[in-house]
Nucleic acid binder design. Structure first.
Length: 222
DNA sequence: CTCCAGGGGGCCA
DNA sequence: TGGCCCCATGGA
């Protein structure tokens, strides 16, 4: 069922999310590693470190862990006393150190980690949890972050607050690998173009974008 | 100097 | 539910 005014498909019957995905893919041709350190302990750790934090600061913290010889969850536990100092560049370091230790204990204790295991830990909301499920465990959960929410509101002109609806919308009919890339493309797009103060004059999606249609005078100034 | 970054929890109405 | 505050560093 389509809600009134909501573009689910175009005239060729393609899903709207796939149209957006393909446009972004064309525009950002250069392939990047969207979430580095996949399949290593650094990936789930960086999911915590990046909470409300600039990625550059996350990289500094990860480099500190590498230089300290910490590369597994066992290493994390064995160096728990040094953790706060090492991740300091990523900010909120007292809270994040606790979260990383809890994460390490879970990974060591449990083999088949499920969504509720992560969600039940303090500091693990849906975004953090789903990024770990998607990028570390290859499970089909589309990650909805603040970038995606802003992107969606601009694109459709509607503020959707329901995480599950957004995840279903953007992840529809996509494979796990496509979900990874699409999420990465949205992040890339929001960092470069669909910023807080958007650069619509260099956006590949203007023909599809509600915000652009309703802010033409603003955008013509360049 | 100010603002904000790939969140989440606690508290309060 | 919805709004606000807190956590903290570092770059623009």
């Amino acid at each position: 069922m389509e809600k009134a005014g909501r573009k689910e498909k175009n005239e060729n019957g393609e899903n709207f999310n796939i149209i957006i995905y393909n446009e972004l893919k064309k525009f950002y041709k250069e392939k990047k590693q969207w979430w580095p350190w996949e399949k290593t302990a650094y990936m789930p750790i960086s999911a915590i470190l990046t909470q409300a934090t600039n990625w550059r600061n996350v990289e500094k913290a990860i480099n500190n862990l590498k230089n300290a010889g910490i590369k597994t969850f066992e290493d994390v536990i064995n160096n728990a006393d040094k953790l706060e100092e090492l991740i300091k560049p990523a900010g909120f370091y007292r809270k994040k150190a606790k979260r990383i230790i809890a994460l390490a204990n879970l990974f060591i204790k449990k083999k088949n980690i499920e969504r509720d295991d992560l969600l039940s830990l303090n500091g693990f909301g849906k975004e953090t949890t789903d990024s770990i499920l998607l990028y570390h465990f290859d499970k089909p959960y589309f990650v909805i972050d603040n970038y995606t929410k802003r992107f969606h509101e601009r694109l459709t002109g509607k503020k959707e607050q329901c995480y599950e609806k957004l995840a279903a919308f953007y992840g529809k009919s996509l494979t796990v690998e496509e979900m990874k890339e699409f999420h990465g493309l949205i992040v890339e797009h929001c960092k470069n173009t669909c910023k807080k103060d958007p650069l619509c004059n260099k956006c590949p999606l203007i023909n599809l974008c509600f915000y652009y249609k309703n802010h033409e005078t603003r955008n013509q100034k360049g």
